[in-house]
Structure formats: C-alpha cells, structure tokens
Amino acid sequence: MDKLHDYAIDGVRWAMPTARVGGMDSGGDGGTFMDGFLRHVSSERNYAAGQVGTPTDFLSFHAKGQPRFVDGHVRMGIDVHLRAVNKGFDKTLSVPSLAATPVVIGESDPEGCAACPSLENGYRKGTMYSRYTAYSRYTAASFPRIWAMARRLNVNLEGVLTWAFEFANQPWFAGFRQLASNGIDLRVMNVFRMFAKLGPDQLAATSDAELPLDEIMAHGVRGQADVGTLATRTRDGKIAVLLWHYHDDDLPGPDAAISLKINGIRGKAPTSATLFRIDDANANAYAAWKRMGSPSAPNMTQYEAMGQASVMRPQSLALSAASRGTVAASVTVPRQGVALVVLDAR
C-alpha cells in the first residue's frame, strides 16, 4: 500500500505540481494501518522518488456516529462520533514532524451507511439530520464541539466533509443520506447554507444550557437537552450567532426560550436583526409533503409547493438596547431546531 501511495502521489505531482496531496482518509482513526502510513510518509524511503518521506499536505480520517432504534424512536450517537474524532486527532498528533499538518475529516457523519434507509437512520428525513450533520461542516451541535476539541489539542483542523449522495429514481424522502430528494432540498442543505453565513472570526459566546464537551463525549445528550451557541464576526463586520436545541432522542420536547444578549456593538445599536430558522415549521419540505398526504408522485403544483417550503426565509427579530454596546432579544428554538441571528454591528 505504501508503494502504491508513493507512486500515485508522484504521478499526481508530475501532472499537477501544485496539487495538494495527503491521506490516508481511513475508516475511523485507521488503527495500526494509520500508524504505518504516518511512519512511512514521515521517515521511510519513498518507493517512487527514492528520498525519505512522501509529500503530505494534509492528514485525513473518517469519524461516524452510531444511531440506534430504542423504545420506538431513534437515538443518535453524537458521543460515539465525537470520540471517533478525538481518536483521529490523536493519530494525527502521534508523529511530531506531522503534528502541525492540516487535518481534514474526510467523512464526518451521524453514521456510516449513506445508502441504508433503516429504522435507526430515519433521522435523515427530519430536523434531527439538519442539526446533527453539517458545515462542510457537521452541525450545529457537533461542529462547535469538533472545533473546540481541535483547539484544545492544538490540531490544525482545515475542513470537515460529509459523505452524501444523490439517489436517482428513489421514493420521495426515502431516508438515504442525501442533501435533496428528487430535486427538493432537505433541511440539512439549509444548515450548510446557515453555516455559510457565519464569519471567519469566532467570538466568545456562552450558554448556561450548553452541555460541556467532555460530558457529551462520555454520555451523549440523553438527559438535559443541549441548548448552545456559536458566534462569529463576518467579513463585512456583522455579528452572526448560531443557536441550536439538540437532544439525542428524536422525541417531542419543550421549546427552548432563549434570552440572547450580544455585547460589543459598535456605534449606534441596531433595533432589529435578521433571523433564519430550520425546524418543523420553517425550511421544511418534508412537513409540506406529509401535509399533502405523502404523495408518491407529486404533481407540478405540489412539487412547486415543496420547493417553496424548503426555502430558508429571512425573518425580522426585534432587538432592544440592554446597556451601552449591548442589545438583547428573545428567541424561541423548538427541540431539534436551529436558528441564526445576523445583525449589523459596524
């Protein structure tokens, strides 16, 4: 395998000298196979070129969760997923000469089988998927924890990818891991759009209802729900605040009544912000399809209605001045919902 890798990298670099190359994009942390790969690319003779080492612009591995069907409902496995990320990070740090190399989680998903529409994977149809997957990057609930873990371990995390497909000629909302069903966006697609509205500079943000990373890694989110936040400053100077209300058990639960305070407002405090929502009533083509009676062959009117229902539409959120440089708002986020607040703070 090392020989195959060396010749492949040599060929790619011959054809495209500036191409970024790396690996090994293992299933999970790669175990002893990953150990051997890291040893070879860092300190052993290159089969193709003869020198010591193989060009390695990034290191990669996969991390998956493990949903289960429990007592008539789906229970997600965010704890399994985060522990897998942690083990993968440990591998990337295990060789000192590679410890600063950019890391890409090549597949980061709630589970490992994109083409398995089973009972435990029923979360894909609803808001459970939209919160649990995402960002190129892995969801409102999981992504901030992955970033926090990377910061804590001093991992140079560059990107996180989902392993999702388009499944042609399949029933509507069949339960595969995909971003759209027969051309209609699923809610997870809107989460990617929501993440795209965040900025490159992360701001300090806290929630008294957000569960600690170590607790989630050890026990998941099985008791108290996880109501968390992530704040960023966008390139054009706005503040974007992500809010989520997550629980591993895909069951009804009370809404989260969030009192939001945003500090550091520059200049005159804005009186309103833009609010985006993804929940049972917003950006939800699946709910619209169910209201139609779950047609197996929607007509054009129904198709267009589902397309309209899938759109994540901006709403207005009233802000009040809490103190100098601080504004406040009240936001209700349903269980398994996500919200994004964007305000002009220039």
Rank of each mutant, 00 (worst) to 15 (best):
P67K: 08
V104Q: 00
K91S: 02
F143W: 14
A150N: 07
G126D: 15
A150C: 11
V85M: 06
D29V: 03
L98D: 01
V80A: 13
A150I: 13
R45E: 08
Y47V: 03
L38Y: 05
V160K: 06
M76H: 08
K87E: 14
A134R: 10
R137Q: 14
T56N: 06
F37S: 04
L82Y: 06
S108P: 00
S130K: 02
A148N: 07
A49M: 07
G106E: 01
G36N: 12
L82P: 05
S142V: 15
G65S: 08
G77A: 11
A84F: 04
K125G: 13
S43L: 01
G112D: 14
T139N: 12
G77P: 08
D29F: 09
W147I: 13
V103A: 05
Y138I: 14
A84P: 06
S108Q: 10
A150G: 10
Y123A: 10
R152M: 10
N121C: 11
V80D: 10
K87P: 00
D57Q: 06
R83Q: 14
G159A: 15
A100H: 03
P96D: 03
F69I: 05
V85L: 11
A140S: 14
V41A: 04
Y138Q: 08
E111K: 05
A140F: 13
L38A: 04
D35Y: 02
A63E: 08
T127R: 09
C113S: 15
T56V: 10
G159M: 09
E158N: 06
S26N: 10
F89L: 03
W147A: 12
F69C: 05
T92A: 03
N46H: 07
F89H: 01
I105G: 05
V95D: 00
A48H: 07
D35H: 06
Q51A: 03
F89W: 00
K87F: 07
G30W: 01
D25V: 00
V104M: 08
A148Y: 03
T32F: 05
V52N: 00
K87A: 14
S118L: 08
D90R: 10
A134Q: 13
Y132M: 11
N121T: 14
G31W: 07
G112C: 12
N154F: 04
M128T: 05
H81I: 02
M128H: 11
H62E: 11
D29H: 13
S97C: 01
L59S: 04
R151M: 09
S60Q: 02
R68W: 02
R131S: 11
R131T: 12
K87H: 08
M128I: 01
K125A: 15
Y129R: 07
A114C: 09
Y123H: 09
E111A: 13
S60F: 01
I146F: 07
Y47I: 01
I105S: 02
I78S: 06
M34E: 05
